[in-house]
Design a protein around this nucleic acid. Structure first.
Lengths: 146, 146
DNA sequence: TATGTTGTAATTTCAATAGTTACAGTGAGA
DNA sequence: TCTCACTGTAACTATTGAAATTACAACATA
């Protein structure tokens, strides 16, 4: 089961804000057009990013700005802002292993730390990459077009 | 969005096969009882593990055995056997970024390699852990009960 | 051949994502 | 102060995928 597109949508939103902030007013409709999803999906993602204090949204007049330097926003910050993981756990563990069975009783003892170490490896790499990195490479690709 | 329980169910199956192979005939019903899911879910997972040549299943008479030494089966082998990722990609990228928008056209150029490096970090750690590790710790926890 | 099991199709249930419609609330500018 | 574009959010629908469930043919051994 793939991780939902909320993560890539959020990154796209932030990249577009930075790229177009001086040329256009970046609204949910503007972003919905670039990303090609429904404006309400954008607004919901905007709210998640706002709750995580990654962006500030201007009510009434519209538009939004990124709250802090892009090299201080990691992909992990973005992931955690928009991707709801139950109990923060990447892997869904089957819920009711049978405690009448020795393996059922003890599988968590044997497996939980391994699952955590895997999730941790993913998160460490997410933390190594900042929004700045994505924006820089995307804008370089745009520049190269011309 | 969490990764489905197929992964932990598959690990549970393999751990139970090793733990009980000398005491019981390990059938889909037996496993369904320990894992507490429907027997058909077990059989479907068995088929995925069989296709990946991680287990051999005995038709008719019932039961199954692990195909190779447990220290040669990594969690990545198990993950890839049972977890269907579209195009092998962990992250679902929003499908139709607007090519009329510079960011829409170039977001893949800026982001794909980062997403891959994150997935890769996860997979490297999965490859570092073998079924043997899980079985050893689970059986140690069982032994400790007594 | 009887028995217990696997393999698998078909259907249902459930949960989550995403799309859609609708509209009240907001704030800046005419 | 009124208008207007936009945000914030509720409500509902559509779609998808996981998992449960029922059912039964295929199979292998005793």
């Amino acid at each position: 089961m793939q991780i939902s597109s909320r993560f890539t949508i959020a990154i796209h939103i932030l990249t577009a804000i930075d790229t177009f902030q001086n040329e256009y007013k970046v609204t949910s409709d503007f972003l919905a057009n670039s990303i090609n999803v429904n404006p309400v999906v954008i607004r919901r993602t905007m709210q998640a990013l706002k709750s995580a204090e990654l962006i500030e949204v201007k009510r009434g007049t519209g538009g939004m700005v990124i709250s802090k330097p892009m090299n201080e926003i990691t992909l992990l910050d973005i992931f955690q802002a928009v991707e709801p993981l139950e109990n923060g756990q990447l892997f869904h563990f089957h819920e009711n292993p049978n405690t009448a069975c020795p393996v059922g009783r003890n599988i968590h003892a044997g497996l939980d730390d391994k699952l955590f170490s895997i999730q941790n490896a993913m998160e460490v790499q997410m933390k190594n990459i900042t929004l700045q990195d994505v924006v820089k490479d995307t804008q370089a690709a745009i520049a190269k077009e011309n």
